[in-house]
Computed example of a mutant assay.
Amino acid sequence: MRKQHASLDAVPDLIARWTGLLGLKTEARYQPSGDEEAFPNRLLITGPDADWLAASRGQALDALQFLVHEAQGEREDTKLAYLDVKGARLFRMQEVMAMGRLAAERARELGSHTLGALSPRERRWVHLVVSREEGLGTESEGTGTFKPVRVFRK
Rank of each mutant, 00 (worst) to 15 (best):
E133S: 04
G23T: 09
L80C: 07
M99H: 13
R42Y: 00
D49Q: 10
K3V: 12
Q59I: 12
E70T: 12
Q72L: 04
W18F: 13
A98T: 15
L80H: 09
R92V: 07
H127S: 05
G137Y: 10
K86Y: 09
S131Y: 07
V68A: 14
R108I: 01
K3P: 01
E109H: 08
K86P: 00
A103Y: 11
L53K: 01
A10W: 01
G23Q: 11
G20H: 05
E141A: 09
E139S: 07
L22F: 13
D9K: 13
T145L: 13
R123D: 02
A81V: 07
R92D: 10
F66Y: 15
S7V: 01
A117N: 07
W125P: 05
K147W: 03
Q4V: 08
A98M: 15
E122P: 01
T26L: 01
D84G: 00
H5L: 04
T78I: 10
M97S: 08
S7M: 02
R29Y: 07
W18V: 11
T46R: 13
K79G: 08
M97A: 06
Y30V: 03
A60E: 11
V129Q: 09
S33N: 05
S131T: 02
R57M: 14
Y30S: 02
L64I: 06
R150D: 02
V68T: 13
G135M: 06
A10K: 11
L22Q: 11
E37P: 00
H127Y: 10
L43F: 05
K79W: 12
M99N: 09
V68P: 02
E95R: 09
P120N: 12
V126L: 07
R106T: 08
L136R: 06
K79Q: 15
A54C: 12
Q59V: 14
P120G: 11
P32C: 03
R124D: 09
A50C: 05
V96D: 04
A88L: 15
A117H: 04
V149S: 04
R42E: 01
D84P: 00
G111I: 09
D35K: 03
S56V: 12
R42D: 00
E70W: 05
A55R: 15
S119Q: 06
T46C: 05
R132W: 11
G111E: 10
W125N: 07
S119F: 08
E139F: 03
G100C: 03
D35R: 08
S7R: 06
Q31E: 14
T19S: 11
T46D: 07
A38R: 03
E76G: 02
T19N: 06
T19D: 03
S7Q: 05
P120R: 13
R92Y: 06
T46Q: 10
L64H: 05
I15L: 13
P32Y: 02
I45W: 12
R124A: 13
G116P: 10
L136Y: 11
H127W: 10
I45H: 11
A81R: 09
R153S: 10
R150I: 01
Q72P: 01
M97W: 04
G144P: 09
R29D: 08
L115N: 02
K79D: 14
D62M: 13
E133H: 03
L24E: 04
R150Q: 09
S33Q: 04
A60N: 13
L8M: 00
